[in-house]
Nucleic acid binder design. Structure first.
Lengths: 335, 335
DNA sequence: CTGTTAGCGCTTTCAA
DNA sequence: TTGAAAGCGCTAACAG
């Protein structure tokens, strides 16, 4: 029954034309308030909602955007999605989510499947497994896109990122000020600008304080959780660092597990500092100092940016939005 | 340019009719292989992809399903989404995701916005804040729906759940066999059948072994993280339980934090057992025994079920699919 | 095996 | 201020 309510039905019941109904529903200036009110009232009464496929076809607007990300099971992306959804809802848009699971093939396959007008625009945070710059260079002209957090620097398009280099530099200095002299680095996102900027911030801070960045102190992220645990244990056994700086949240649990297995006390024997967007991190261990990215705000900004593009409102020349992360120090008095 | 490629264009270039092209693209038996090949070749050459809005409008099929869940920032739902996406991709479907953040109003608002043909079907896991049975009773006749994990029992519709009662019973017995006699319960999802079944399994197991379920030993979940931590600390101080059975993952971190603050050793002073779908739980603490739900498979089954309905293939009479959870014992020798 | 034709529900000129 | 009519791109009778 209620599925059958369309413009035609409204027009018939009100004895006016289809065109008038359509215009009234869209609040056109051409229609008298009296007619509009009649239409609106009946529409509400019959629970009318426009058929999206029909409007899409006619107007080439889908009221839908896509979000393509590596994974939703990650505090950063979960929060970013929340930020995106908030804005999307304000604009009456729907959100398609695609998870690439860090697979570049999937990333391209999803994106390609969206070029036929299924969505009005795309928000994406690229996969970390390959540097896929060429692909996107061609893409950004075909559909409105905004990149967030994981971006390619060379692309002349809209990007929302954070101050990875600066905050890593500051965080490393914080560890040095705490008296750490042998700071190990747990390295993630190596193939992406964000990952490299974090590492560079760490290296430069060490150098600025007369310390050396040694390859022996770097653990490279592995997708195999057990390997990460083992590699950190080996790091402790062979290098005995007095601090760990983790560039991604995924290293926190293996880091804590390694300390526990080796009976190292945190923060007495080793200080741990990590990029981390977990809301309950503050409960986890009072000694974990974190770099928290404004994930929700990044989603917000990225979505706002996309809607500006979609509505052809001026974006200005600032295609790059850079937000500030926060260093949350904890247990700095502990020891 | 490439956006302009439609059936008409293909037809013109090949000097055949639009209808023939359409049928060829859909691999209709009416069309000769020779013609099909000509069409397919040109389509590929010109990078043709059908306009989804047009097919939707004509066929009343959107090739899109919606997933409505409380939150993606949760290991169970993340995995379930992964399971859903896998099946959706096999069927060439797209997935819209809506997060209710446990807000019943939003849940209804999202669902209502999908009733006008934007999607072919809905997968949902209901919000825990209210028992919204009446709403769904009217809904399930309007659009194909499958409920998973968080369901309403009274609804005569498709449901994919797990053996919450049984596994909780088993898990509680496991704690009793370990020598625990004062087992506290961290109670979540109280308003939902799943949550109540878990609690009942716990109570019945206690009773079966001559132990008593006391309200003093129950901590009720609060959305405020700090409260959960405080309540568990109070529990320890006032009741000194020798085990914690957590019905939801969200209690793990406050439980561990409480133990740490009170300097309780796990599992020596207190054993902890929790429903938990975190993939890295095994790294977190060797003493954490977990009940792991087959989240990915639940997503798989729920999606398969929905596609069966959409394709009108017989579902049989088993509208209820119940999957088995797993009790993963760890550090049972520790102490 | 191929083509003609009507029309899905809506928007948008253009005419009245 | 309202209405008639064309058509978005595609599918599916039906005819040939």
């Amino acid at each position: 029954m209620s599925g059958e309510v369309n413009i035609k039905r409204l027009a018939q019941e009100l004895n006016i034309s289809i065109a008038t109904v359509s215009k009234a529903l869209n609040d056109s200036y051409e229609i008298s308030l009296k007619t509009k009110n009649r239409v609106w009232t009946l529409a509400k009464e019959l629970n009318y909602t426009p058929n999206p496929a029909a409007s899409n076809l006619r107007s080439n607007k889908t009221k839908t955007i896509a979000v393509i990300i590596p994974c939703v099971a990650n505090n950063f992306f979960s929060l970013a999605i929340k930020g995106i959804e908030e804005i999307a809802r304000q604009y009456g848009y729907h959100v398609l989510i695609y998870q690439t699971h860090e697979d570049t093939e999937m990333e391209m396959s999803f994106t390609n499947s969206l070029l036929n007008g299924r969505v009005d625009g795309i928000l994406t945070s690229v996969s970390s497994n390959e540097y896929n710059n060429e692909y996107y260079k061609n893409l950004v002209n075909k559909i409105p896109m905004v990149f967030f957090d994981r971006v390619y620097e060379e692309l002349d398009t809209f990007k929302v990122t954070t101050d990875d280099y600066q905050i890593s530099f500051t965080a490393t200095e914080h560890l040095i000020e705490q008296g750490c002299t042998k700071i190990a680095y747990l390295y993630g996102l190596e193939k992406l600008p964000a990952g490299r900027a974090r590492f560079l911030g760490y290296c430069d801070a060490l150098q600025a304080h007369g310390l050396l960045a040694a390859e022996d102190l770097v653990v490279h992220y592995s997708e195999d959780e057990a390997s990460n645990l083992q590699n950190i244990k080996t790091l402790f056994q062979e290098q005995a660092p007095d601090a760990l700086f983790s560039s991604i949240e995924e290293f926190i649990i293996p880091a804590y597990s390694a300390c526990q297995e080796l009976q190292l006390q945190i923060p007495k024997d080793v200080k741990i500092l990590s990029f981390c967007n977990m809301s309950s991190a503050k409960l986890l261990n009072p000694s974990l100092t974190t770099i928290t990215q404004p994930a929700f705000e990044i989603g917000n900004e990225a979505a706002k940016c996309l809607f500006k593009v979609l509505n052809k409102r001026g974006i200005g020349d600032d295609k790059d939005i850079v937000l500030q992360s926060t260093l949350i120090k904890r247990a700095s008095t502990g020891g």
